[in-house]
Design a binder for these strands. Structure first.
Lengths: 124, 124
DNA sequence: GTGAATGTATTACAGCTGTAATCCAAATAA
DNA sequence: TTATTTGGATTACAGCTGTAATACATTCAC
């Protein structure tokens, strides 16, 4: 089974666009990222190229213009990144992450209640 | 307020050693990492140097040999990495991460119960 | 048909990372 | 005292990343 290629920070933004709406032309990606970033169009084309090189995406040449689409799913990538992040920072254990987050008070009472509901479902 | 410098994967391993027992000589760090990694001593010295350069650690010259110690706390670093990870992958939201993890069945029933207890405490 | 625009391909370049090796000075052994 | 060892400082070098610019080819407007 093939593991997903490593996707860098900047590349990740491009992937999110393609995961949200696929396929996309380069220009569509550029437009989608215009609000969130200050990247020049050439920069985004470079990122598309690199993603194609590392086989995270591919493209077909529809009516003269490339239409890019992901080769790896968001779920796969999220899972892979999360796993390696947890391993790096928390030694692979998920609980300390939650504990840390609760300590930091990043969650509202509503969030906490919702998490409890999720956990309840899981215990059913 | 100063933010923590970015600590790379390999550097993180060194920091963990220093957080666990501080101060440490280079040789102590090298020995501590001998089981977990295949790194040559020179490699670890390089990492110590880089960490000192980016002011994540410093050292004092005790009896002819450097004794290294962290300048940033594990808590700070963990928090900073976690925040930027969440922002990158999950758009900053913590809940999807938990949901994802539960989906993947990475947690035992005991884990789930423990998380619920933590959340209960938080709600009290 | 020729110049301008547009999309694609190639090239650029510095900083960070992984992974060391080499050089040098001081201490130690002989 | 001289050769060896050892620790620290400097240098190496390629691959990845961020951030594009330039070169080239095709198409479109005149």
């Amino acid at each position: 089974m093939t593991s997903v290629p490593h996707i860098s920070d900047a590349e990740w933004e491009v992937m999110k666009v393609l995961w949200a709406k696929t396929p996309c032309t380069a220009n569509e990606v550029i437009e989608a990222l215009a609000d969130q970033t200050d990247w020049k169009p050439k920069t985004i084309r470079t990122l598309l190229n690199r993603l194609a090189l590392k086989q995270a995406i591919s493209y077909s040449q529809e009516n003269k213009v490339y239409a890019y689409f992901p080769l790896v799913s968001e779920d796969e990538c999220v899972k892979s990144e999360t796993t390696s992040f947890l391993k790096r920072i928390y030694g692979g254990a998920f609980k300390p992450l939650l504990v840390n987050f609760l300590k930091e008070d990043h969650l509202s009472q509503e969030d906490i209640q919702e998490l409890k509901n999720i956990l309840d479902d899981k215990t059913k």
